[in-house]
Structure formats: C-alpha cells, structure tokens
Computed example of a mutant assay.
Amino acid sequence: MDVLSDAIAVMRTGRPHSARTEKHAPWGLRFHSEGRSGFHALLEGSAWLVPADESAPPVRLAPGDLVFIAHRGGHALVGEPGTPVEDVSLLPDGTWPRAPEPDPGDGRPPSAVMICGAYLLDEGRSHPLLSELPDVVHLPASDAGNGGLRAVLDLLGDELARPRPGSDTIVTSLLDTLLLLILRTWWLRVRGDEGEPTGWAAALADPAVAAALRAIHSDPAHPWTVEELGALSHLSRAPFARRFTASVGRPPLAYLTWWRMTSAAGWLREPDGAPLRSVAERAGYATEFAFAKAFKREFGLAPGRYRKLRAAG
C-alpha cells in the first residue's frame, strides 16, 4: 500500500472545493484560518503571498507557481506588497464565494489569473507525514519535476473556466490528484536536499522502515510482531525496532495500534458505514468489545458515539 495515499485518505473529512479567479490591479485578499488547508496556483500574471506571521517574508509567485497552506494558517494574497486587502471567507458548505469581479473600465486584461482551492483535513488525527510540512509550501514552476503539477492545473483551470457535463466529478478528482502531487513533490524535494533526510522523509527513504510501513498499511488487521516486521528487511528485532522508532517517532507496535485506530476512525466517518463488527475486524480486533475498549482509550469516545457525532457534525 502507498503510505502517502493512505495518510490523505484517513484525514479527508469532506469534499474539496476550488474556484478560478481573475483579478485586476490593484487587488488584495485576506484569507482567515477556517479549519481548512488550501492552495493558490498562479496561471497568469504575478502575485505575492503574505503569511500571517509578520516575521515571515512575502513569497513572490510567478506563472505556474503554487503555494500550499498546510496548517490552516491565515494569509493574504496581493497583486503588490502593501496593497489594501479585503476579507474572503468560505461559504458554510465550504465553497468559495462568487463575488462579481470589478469592471477594469478600460478593457485591460487581468493582472492575475489564479486557481484557489480548499481541503478539509482532520488535523486532530493528522498523519506525521503531513504534520512535518512547513506552514507554507512553495512549489515554483521552474523546479524540475513539477511538470505533473502544471498538467493537472491546466486541466483543472479548463474545467473551472468551462464547466461541462461531468465537471463536478472531474474537478473533485483533479483536486485529489493535485493534493497528492503537492505532497509527493515536497517529499521528494526534502529527500533530495543535501544532507541526510530526517523524520518521515528518512522513514520512507529507509528500505527497512519503508517495508514495515507498507506491510502495516497493507494489512493492519494482521497480528504483526516486531520480529515479523524486522524480518521483512532481514533485520533482527532490536536493530529494527531502534531504526523504526528513530525515524517514525513511535515503536513499531505503537504505530500499528495508532494506524489501526486512525483507520477505524476514517471508516466510522464514512456515510452508510460498515457495522461496528466489520470495522473491528478490519482493524485487527476479534471482538467488538476489544475494539471498543481500544478505540475509547485512543479517542475518549465509544465507536458508536464517535460515528453519531461525526455524522451530526
């Protein structure tokens, strides 16, 4: 199984949304922290991203550049630094407001054409792979290896500019693809930087640890032992456990339990979800009672109560 894809799958709690926007100078937008991660991609023109942290420098965006706001941080997007900004808030359903564009008056082309998007991710169960992201991930179009991002952005921009039958599903699929490409591009960049990678970049680059992670993600219900996981990479118990813990941040069986509970929470959030007995079996528990006890220890709620609260919220 793909650890990165799994990490996104268990964190996704709603449908992503996006909008294509044309702006005429002077313009400035302020985005507040609203419980969503998001991105801005510049298709044409120029723009600056201004982080909420005043100590962080503004980021200049060129055509094809993308910035991902990983941790729901407030920020501004402006045509030029110092431009006054207007507040932008998502609608209650998570979609972008469709405010009318001001008439430039003289037929000038827009100074910026952008795609902005938002993802609802459950950071309460954030996978460490995502927790390690910086607040702002800047992926310039000039970087080698960003061709896939540009291709998806071109398709997304076309669907948003000219909606046709099937566009709703296509846009959602493209947004999911874009998020995975953003994270993969960042991870490959971190792994390829000079010096030894650290954290989850090191974990996924280490064949022994990566093999164990793939096994856990592939079959979380299996009664894995440290010896069995280590044997996948021809390591004895103690060296494997030290290596896994150092890069992942949890001992192997602790990570297994955490992943089982995190996966179970995602399954419980699914509409028309499976019976609790089936969720317990998928999570590696022989009885509902044993599963409920482990789940309540992790979340402070019984699985049935968790499901009802998430469905209501």
Score class of each variant (00 low, 15 high):
Asp2Gly: 09
Val3Asn: 01
Leu4Asn: 09
Asp6Lys: 09
Ala9Phe: 06
Ala9His: 11
Val10Gln: 06
Arg15Pro: 07
His17Val: 04
Ser18Glu: 05
Ser18Met: 01
Arg20Ser: 11
Thr21Pro: 02
Lys23Pro: 07
Lys23His: 15
His24Lys: 00
His24Ile: 08
Ala25His: 10
Ala41Phe: 10
Leu42Ile: 10
Leu43Tyr: 03
Trp48Tyr: 04
Leu49Ser: 06
Ala52Ser: 15
Asp53Gln: 13
Val59Gly: 04
Ala62Pro: 03
Leu66Pro: 02
Val67Asn: 01
Val67Ile: 15
Phe68Arg: 01
Ala70Thr: 05
His71Leu: 07
Gly73Val: 13
Gly74Val: 09
Val78Trp: 02
Thr83Asn: 08
Thr83Tyr: 05
Glu86Arg: 12
Leu90Pro: 02
Leu91Phe: 02
Gly94Asp: 04
Thr95Gln: 10
Pro100Thr: 05
Gly105Ser: 03
Asp106Asn: 13
Val113Arg: 12
Tyr119Asp: 02
Leu120Gly: 10
Leu121Ile: 06
Glu123Ala: 14
His127Lys: 01
Leu130Val: 09
Ser131Met: 15
Val136Lys: 04
Pro140Thr: 03
Asn146Arg: 12
Arg150Asp: 07
Arg150Met: 10
Arg150Lys: 07
Ala151Gly: 11
Ala151Cys: 11
Leu153Trp: 00
Leu153Arg: 04
Glu159Pro: 01
Ala161Val: 11
Arg162Tyr: 06
Ser167Phe: 01
Ile170Thr: 15
Thr172His: 05
Leu181Tyr: 06
Leu181Arg: 08
Ile182His: 01
Gly192Asp: 14
Asp193Arg: 15
Asp193Tyr: 12
Pro197His: 06
Pro197Lys: 04
Thr198Lys: 09
Trp200Leu: 14
Trp200Asp: 00
Leu204Tyr: 03
Leu204Phe: 07
Leu204Ile: 13
Leu204Pro: 05
Pro207Met: 12
His222Lys: 10
Thr225Val: 08
Glu228Asp: 12
Leu229Ser: 04
Leu235Trp: 01
Leu235Phe: 00
Leu235Lys: 07
Arg237Trp: 02
Thr245Arg: 10
Ala246Asp: 15
Arg250Tyr: 13
Leu256Asn: 06
Trp267Cys: 08
Arg269Met: 03
Pro271His: 05
Asp272Pro: 07
Ala274Thr: 13
Ala280Cys: 14
Ala283Asn: 03
Gly284Pro: 00
Gly284Glu: 03
Tyr285Gly: 07
Thr287Asn: 04
Thr287His: 14
Phe289Met: 11
Ala290Thr: 12
Glu298Thr: 14
Phe299Ile: 09
Gly300His: 08
Pro303Ser: 10
Leu309Arg: 10
Leu309Val: 13
Gly313Val: 11
